[in-house]
Amino acid sequence: MGCIFSKENRQFPGYEDPINLASQTAFSVSEVEALFELYKSISSSIIDDGLINREEFQLAIFNNRKKENLLANRLFDLFDVQQQGFIDFGDFVRSLSVFHPNAPEEDKIEFSFKLYDLDNTGFIERQEVKQMLIALLSESEMKLADETIEIILDKTFMEADVKGDGKIDKSEWQSFVCKNPSLLKVMTLPYLRDITTTFPSFVFNSEVDEIA
């Protein structure tokens, strides 16, 4: 028994061995291969170079070319684990793994903390949260007066910033999320359970004929 590999996928820029990726993530080998079908489509949507750039990432999220979005940009930065200015297949799978329904909750809490810690200081600061609220309002039809935003921030920090130093650290975030589990909803993608049925064509491109 053994593995038979085709060379086609391995020659794809940014490609990484699915067996290796499956061993490091919440995905099976078949699921990693199905994700490769999705990855190929996103990474060739603007420039067919086998890598996902910032614009391709935003295009995939918004389904159309749209002006820059702060939160999609932040997600891109976190997916771009090696800070290369693009997402390669390994980055894509490892990052999406955190969003798997079976991924450990601690990983989801950690990722969500980083997501909101826009300037990577190790704290979620009031100014960052305000910036994200304003970005949200600019993309929606919701209009809120500045004083309403401040009331929302006061209420949020009163609950989350237990130490009262004007910023939320990791342990405060953990407690806050435990009291407000709906905040982690955005960190779980039920689609990832059915990835092989969403992208069945992976079977035709599978590199793994048989796994011992």
């Binding site: 999705l38 489509s41 996103i42 995939a60 999220i61 918004f62 389904n63 979005n69 702060l70 939160l71 999609a72 940009n73 932040r74 997600l75 999406l96 969003f99 997501l115 909101y116 949260v129 994200m132 609220l133 970005a135 949200l136 993309e139 929606s140 919701m142 809120l144 309403t148 009331i151 929302i152 921030l153 209420k155 949020t156 609950e159 989350a160 407000n180 709906s182 905040l183 909803k185 955005v186 993608l189 689609y191 990835i195 969403t198």
Partner: peptide, 26 residues
């Protein structure tokens, strides 16, 4: 729900920019 009943992060999580589900809805 009215924004004032929600905390800031509940509101932010509604951003389309964080909606990775759209990657799978082709």
């Amino acid at each position: 729900a009215a924004p004032l009943t929600m905390n800031a992060f509940e509101l932010i999580s509604k951003s389309q920019g964080l909606n990775l589900s759209s990657l799978f809805e082709k």
